[in-house]
Amino acid sequence: MSSSNSSSASNIEADLFNLAMSDAAQPLMDAVTKHIRDNVEPIIEEFHALEKEKTDRWSWHPRQLELLEGAKNKAKESGLWNFFLPDSELGEGLTNLDYAYIATELGKYPLASETLNCSAPDTGNMEVLERVGTEAQKEQ
């Protein structure tokens, strides 16, 4: 290995230990925490209680969808959408590292990921379409 290669390899090795959230992501993290407090935590109890009132197990109670859509719309209005897509025009262009901090917070609250369009398995599927889909496939 040439010396320049080994020095760039050791730079990468060192970079792998730079694990701080970027300054740019901090306001977003604060906005997500606020979104969870204002728009997610208040709906969790009612959302789950509605499970008992459903007539068909394999559908949503209309009020459940209303609660979810309400929280999603508030997220969109605050510019919180699609964090998971790194370096994409559609999402926030967050790095995986910055998203890691945010997703850890989302994991603590049921429904939080979904209100930001960040739930599994949807994120992976959307990323596939974004990266390899044709325009017609994305449209579908």
Partner: peptide
């Protein structure tokens, strides 16, 4: 080839949220 795109992020997203669940 697509799976290499698809599964890396999905897997690590699961792990991130799981850390949140462990904290909870």
């Amino acid at each position: 080839e697509i799976s290499q795109v698809r599964l890396g992020p999905g897997r690590i997203h699961h792990c991130m949220r799981s850390i949140g669940k462990a904290e909870k």
